[in-house]
């Protein structure tokens, strides 16, 4: 094979992307678990740890630029690198969402939760699952899978609507819950946006494989309110 070093570097970068994806997946689920357990020490650690995700993003981005500048990739290789640049940006923002949830955990502190957290962890699990599948589709160049994933966003949207309605009833029943209920709604919003960003990754996977740029966004079809 010609250009072995270059191809090895391309493969290494894809591995790095996957590693960054794992960091984000863990942060997402962990952030909601910390909130549920009211683990403030863990929340502080997660907020601080977001730095590592950002560093990873910058490192991958820098390596992609070096590869473009020195190796002049073309065609499919160029699309892989363009997709990586786009996907690391999405992952970095998802990392910020997880950090935002950990910050909310710190804001709520040790005050009693107004409701048991059941749907929020489910949303986090589902968003994590979708992200995992999208990265799997990236590594396998599986456009069937990439095209199928965005439909799962409906489940996340449905959970979001459920959380939203439930929190409204708490606020109406006792306005003193307003503060915490708003914070919890932000958590739901962050998770809902995470799932939306998975759709962007899926679009990039299809582009990377086919060269076609097509929008898959379900346009928050199932979300009733502010999102």
């Amino acid at each position: 094979m010609v250009r072995e070093t270059y191809i090895r570097e391309l493969e290494r970068l894809q591995g790095e992307l996957l590693a960054m994806g794992s960091m984000v997946e863990n942060a997402l689920v962990e952030s909601v678990q910390l909130l549920k357990r009211q683990d403030l020490e863990g929340a502080r650690r997660l907020v601080a740890g977001d730095y590592l995700i950002n560093q990873k993003r910058f490192a991958i981005e820098a390596d992609v630029l070096v590869l473009i500048a020195t190796q002049q990739p073309m065609a499919g290789d160029l699309r892989v690198l363009a997709a990586i640049l786009e996907i690391v940006t999405e992952l970095e923002r998802m990392g910020d969402y997880a950090k935002g949830i950990a910050r909310i955990a710190l804001m709520i502190g040790k005050q009693p939760l107004i409701k048991p957290l059941v749907d929020l962890p489910r949303m986090a699990e589902k968003a994590r699952d979708m992200l995992h599948q999208s990265l799997d589709a990236f590594m396998r160049r599986d456009i069937e899978l990439a095209r199928a994933i965005p439909a799962q966003d409906e489940e996340v949207d449905a959970l979001y609507n459920q959380v939203y309605r439930e929190l409204l009833t708490y606020i109406m029943a006792d306005p003193r819950t307003l503060d915490q209920a708003t914070h919890l709604l932000w958590v739901a919003h962050n998770l809902e946006r995470t799932a939306d960003r998975v759709t962007n990754i899926c679009e990039r996977v299809v582009f990377m494989v086919t060269g076609e740029m097509a929008e898959m966004d379900t346009e928050n079809a199932g979300v009733e309110s502010i999102a």
Binding site: R3, P73, A75
Partner: peptide
Amino acid sequence: MFTKPTHELTESYITGRAG
């Protein structure tokens, strides 16, 4: 041609995997 060639052989050639 240089972003999404149609033929596999073109892809292989311009990405340095053949030729």
